[in-house]
Amino acid sequence: MLKVNIHKAFPGITIDVDFTVTEGILVIFGPSGSGKSTILNCISGLQQPDAGHISLNERLFYSGSAGISMPTRNRHIGYVFQDYALFPHMTVKDNVMYGIPARCKAGSGYRMTVLDVLEMLKITHLQDRYPGQLSGGEKQRVALARALMVEPDLLLLDEPLSALDHANRKAFQGELLELQRIWQIPFLLVTHSRKEMTVLADEVLFMDKGRQVTYAPAA
């Protein structure tokens, strides 16, 4: 279970959210500049809240009052960035395998091998290419595969569909739903598209100017 309570002030905008996710896909919905990505960054540890509390399955990520902040690398969170953030100098295979060594040493078992993940996302034939040689949809799949290979306990997706064309978007939506069913971990997905929200959300967090407007199960 993911518990998030964040307070963070910027010049011009203050972000205040409080929500809990047990399973399924929580869509964080709101216009650009409403603080959606900041929430993902705080959960992953890339940014620090000013105050609050973040925990996942009894693991405390952040506590403002106790002065605790776990480093990003120990949080075991998959993060699919808006612009994919694939390493341009590595092949698809090297990108996907980048997150593995750290967890291997921890001795944890794997749900899926690299080949399984590549196969599932239909990118096996791309493994020796470089990101510069991929289309937007292919990059998206590689980014997703890379995030899943660390065996995350939570997956964050920042506008994962915004750069895809209509056909790719539809296919990818279906795959995300399928993935969530297989992986059985909470997904947090940021979007400003009402359509995506309707298709993907189990629950929705509506954001406006940094504030949580409503928090409700999807209709």
Partner: peptide, 8 residues
């Protein structure tokens, strides 16, 4: 940042 989330 991506590398950081990948545990590096």
């Amino acid at each position: 940042q991506a590398a950081r989330t990948l545990g590096a």
